[in-house]
Simulated scan of single mutants.
Amino acid sequence: MSRSLRHGALAATALVFSIAGLSACGAGNDAQTLQVRPDNAATAVDSIKIQNLNIITQPEPDAEGPAVIAATLFNDGAKQEVVEKVTLPGTDAIVKLQGAKGKGPLVVPAGGRVIIGGKDNASAVIENGSQAGRNGNVQTVAFTFSETGEIALGAAIVPATGFFKDFGPSSLPSAKPMPTPSDSASETPGEQSEAPGEQSGSPSATPTDSATPTDDAAAGH
């Protein structure tokens, strides 16, 4: 009888864990809802593999400026692939693509790879970072390749802090401050000091010019 009770208790416990797991799945893919940090997105279609995909926003909360897409693209095919465009479906975000060191299109060589994000690497910049979404959420990113076509997958949105600091955007520089009256006053003597120099140059040239006829006259005698 006690053995039956033990089996019944184990079955009830398993049912509770199953319901808890289903409840977590029903919460959706929103990382803030699940209170977990999703793994870096990865997928493979034909000869193209996309790994370590993230959208990286400004390091400071609510800071204005661009966001960037960071990923590694692998091409196991026999032909190079050009990333023709990258979009964020469901948004009006514009993503600007550039090859490594800002040169040429974003090309994934045959049998090679391309890193997007970080110093001297290829870049995919979301001009208006606020359109990328909120930190902690997941946003779909669609890559369009010249041979393979479109590949879409979800990317975690994270700020450019910690591990992502060297791959994300930096804060926009502050506006250049307007000169203060004291600065203007300090520049006035400098401007005036140049004027006497220019005037002193003119008189010094005059005696030299006047001396030239005298020398010619002496040579004539």
Rank of each mutant, 00 (worst) to 15 (best):
N40W: 09
A44I: 01
V45D: 09
V45S: 11
D46M: 04
D46L: 04
I50S: 02
Q51G: 10
Q51N: 14
N54F: 11
T57H: 02
D62C: 07
E64K: 15
E64F: 12
P66Y: 05
P66G: 04
A67L: 09
A67Q: 05
A71W: 00
A71I: 01
F74P: 03
N75R: 05
N75V: 02
G77H: 05
A78N: 12
K79D: 13
E81S: 06
V83W: 03
K85C: 03
T87S: 14
L88N: 00
G90W: 04
V95C: 04
K96W: 00
K96R: 14
K96E: 14
K96F: 07
G99N: 11
G102F: 03
L106V: 02
V107C: 02
A110I: 06
G112V: 07
V114G: 01
K119I: 13
A122G: 15
A122V: 05
V125C: 05
V125D: 11
I126S: 02
N128F: 03
G129C: 08
S130N: 13
A132H: 00
A132P: 00
A132Q: 00
N135E: 13
V141P: 04
A142P: 07
F143D: 08
F143V: 10
F145V: 11
G149Q: 14
L153F: 08
I157F: 12
P159K: 10
P159V: 11
F163D: 11
F167T: 02
S170M: 06
S170C: 00
P173D: 05
D183P: 00
D183E: 15
D183F: 02
S184T: 11
S186Q: 15
